[in-house]
């Protein structure tokens, strides 16, 4: 176990899988010589050479589709999007081709490709660079979607995603890249997709979150405990699809209250689905309406003063929690 950053954890995970399987390649804009726009791939070019760590032109549609075609042939490409926002120009390749080829071929073809990169707001880069498409990626049957919140999860989940035989959308967060925490060492460390994690056990309210919202939930839980004598349980979903429904329902049945927090936009967001599942599976256990805090329903703004109120902050989440307690 060593304490490393989320960025380095991803780097380790990628390096281990590149080492383990010669069919794995990493491609994307600036991943090789430039060492990655966010330095996630630093050192990999030197270690694995230019045939494995591949700089692409700014052509998301072509290199995403190329990766899908190569995966159909048995390779395991990992595609880095500098921002997940840029997937919008490659939409057809990801959501038509990667997600549907297996189905349309009656199961004759596998598409073991990983699309990864940061998908978050909060960095003053405006609406075009701040999209969080986990909800519509998860709305696509055939696709798997992962949103790691911690360095250990980033490593364990990227390794599982690369080994997975289905296409995976792996969504990171630029604000978390510098976050440091304990990360297990060794090639064998993996975290299965679809397994949520109880970050903090509690009895009075379940705060269910994914991605960076997990860290907001942790702050709120501390305050609830310190100032309000409330014991909050935090559930980090880690994967959106598959989804650990069992863990969600078990937690809500225990605490009888659910607060859902996400940095996704609200309408048809991930938590809309989770809200449905809770009322469907644990209706009689609820002592209060399900509460939900998501990003403000406006395009992501540039100005710090505006953007600071767009993402679900500590105060807002705390208020929502107190509302249902």
């Amino acid at each position: 176990m060593s304490i490393i950053s989320y960025r380095d954890a991803l780097n380790q995970g990628l390096a281990e899988e590149l080492q383990r399987d010669s069919n794995v390649v990493l491609m994307g804009e600036e991943v090789a010589q430039f060492k990655g726009s966010y330095k996630v791939s630093e050192g990999l070019l030197e270690k694995f050479g230019p045939s494995r760590i591949i700089d692409t032109p700014i052509s998301e549609a072509a290199f995403s589709g190329l990766a899908v075609g190569a995966s159909m042939m048995g390779m395991r490409p990992v595609v880095e999007f500098m921002f997940w926002s840029f997937c919008y120009v490659a939409f057809d390749q990801i959501f038509n081709n990667a997600a549907n080829v297996r189905y349309m071929s009656g199961g004759l073809i596998n598409v073991p490709v990983v699309f990864r990169g940061p998908a978050n707001g909060g960095t003053n880069v405006g609406a075009t660079h701040s999209h969080t498409p986990e909800n519509f990626a998860a709305n696509t049957p055939g696709m798997k979607v992962v949103c790691p919140a911690t360095p250990a999860d980033a490593k364990g989940l990227i390794k599982s995603s690369i080994r997975d035989n289905d296409p995976v959308c792996f969504m990171e967060n630029t604000i978390l890249y510098n976050l440091k925490d304990e990360v297990p060492e060794g090639e064998d460390f993996i975290i299965p997709l679809g397994k949520a994690k109880i970050v903090t056990e509690g009895n009075d309210i379940s705060i269910i979150a994914h991605g960076k919202a997990v860290h907001t939930a942790i702050e709120v839980a501390e305050e609830l405990s310190d100032k309000h004598n409330v014991s909050a349980e935090i559930l980090d979903l880690r994967s959106i699809r598959p989804l650990d429904q069992e863990a969600i329902i078990a937690s809500v049945k225990k605490t009888n209250r659910a607060l859902l927090v996400e940095e996704n936009k609200p309408f048809c967001g991930v938590d809309a689905q989770i809200c449905f599942l809770i009322q469907d599976q644990a209706f009689d256990y609820l002592d209060a309406p399900i509460a939900r805090v998501s990003a403000v329903d406006a395009p992501q703004a540039y100005s710090k003063s505006l953007e600071s109120v767009q993402l679900p902050g500590r105060e807002k989440v705390l208020k929502a929690a107190l509302n249902i307690l």
């Binding site: 045939s51 589709g65 057809d92």
Partner: peptide, 24 residues
């Protein structure tokens, strides 16, 4: 390898098949 319904959508896939051939 198909059979693809979106006009031009197969052009990057064909590229990827060629890429894999070269890789192998």
């Amino acid at each position: 390898w198909g059979g693809h319904g979106i006009v031009g959508g197969q052009t990057p896939l064909g590229l990827g098949i060629a890429y894999a051939l070269k890789n192998f």
